[in-house]
């Protein structure tokens, strides 16, 4: 009943434990998800690898291609890091609305990605930022776009011997606006009813590139293809904001009724929030242009 636990002190130890034969191990980071799962018996792993003390998974580094964030970066660390603030204000805004302080101190970037809940708040932000996740195993390392990595309801492309090592947020374009909005069941300590994250690059008055993603409105973190298509190459007029948001809400999301909200609400609130977010970025908890 009690799982076998490996408390890894280094990346090598963690990877060795993951590479062992037998039942696949569950990775334990900040515990905000797995500790509850274990307690309620919803998850009964045979093996757990605790990576919390693996120093190689911590820290934020500037690289040529962008900002590299260790998988064990907590929400609290991310939202106090000035480099993250200037590079990815969208991610900071998302971190600020995860749980409350106690959860922010423990919830990690890697945990959000690994759990791959459709309601995980950091994942839409990472998708909108075009982030890539680096997976490491004893076989080597590889990088996968977060968008592809989150491949289904609580499903990822992580192989059983792989560990999420870090995330690369690519260098930002010169003129960009990053937008974020979470709608939860209350004003803090809430699981989202919907989240939306948008990164807009501009050339002159026209949108030159868009990446957008949403959470809690489908079985996984969703990329908003219709929205991206509608906006590219056009100036952000109020009419376009409204029509693109509505088209996106019709085509890009597949919300359901659950204990937190309804499909009808999610679709309509999503369209309304998104339209406002695009049209009046200063009037909502969005991020200032970097």
């Amino acid at each position: 009943m009690t799982p076998e636990v490996t408390v890894a002190r280094s990346l090598d130890e963690a990877l060795a434990a993951l590479a062992r034969d037998g039942a696949a191990a569950h990775v334990l980071a900040g515990g905000t998800d797995l500790m509850v799962e274990l307690r309620t018996g919803r998850t009964r792993p045979e093996r757990v690898v605790d990576v919390w003390k693996v120093g190689e998974l911590r820290g934020v580094r500037e690289e040529n291609e962008g900002l590299r964030l260790g998988a064990l970066s907590t929400c609290a660390e991310l939202l106090r890091d000035s480099r993250v603030a200037s590079h990815a204000p969208l991610l900071v805004a998302a971190c600020r609305e995860v749980g409350a302080e106690q959860i922010q101190a423990r919830a990690t970037l890697g945990g959000n990605l690994g759990t791959a809940s459709p309601a995980a708040d950091l994942n839409p932000a990472l998708v909108a930022l075009g982030a890539r996740v680096r997976l490491r195993s004893r076989r080597g390392a590889r990088e996968v776009a977060v968008d592809e990595f989150l491949c289904g309801y609580r499903k990822t492309l992580r192989e059983r011997d792989e560990l999420i090592e870090s995330v690369l947020v690519p260098t930002r374009p010169a003129h960009e606006r990053q937008l974020w909005r979470k709608v939860g069941t209350r004003r803090a300590q809430s699981i989202s009813k919907l989240t939306v994250a948008v990164a807009l690059a501009f050339e002159g008055a026209c949108v030159s590139a868009v990446r957008a993603a949403a959470g809690s409105v489908g079985p996984r973190t969703l990329r908003l293809a219709t929205l991206e298509r509608e906006l590219v190459g056009r100036p952000l007029s109020p009419a376009l904001c409204r029509s693109a948001a509505a088209a996106c809400a019709r085509a890009d999301i597949t919300p359901i009724d659950d204990v937190r909200s309804t499909a009808l609400y999610r679709r309509h609130a999503f369209a309304r929030v998104l339209a406002t977010l695009l049209a009046e970025p200063d009037g909502v908890p969005a991020c200032p242009p970097s």
Binding site: L28, G31, M35, R106
Partner: peptide
């Protein structure tokens, strides 16, 4: 500050 119910 952490929730001690979530910390192994």
């Amino acid at each position: 500050v952490v929730n001690s119910c979530l910390v192994p």
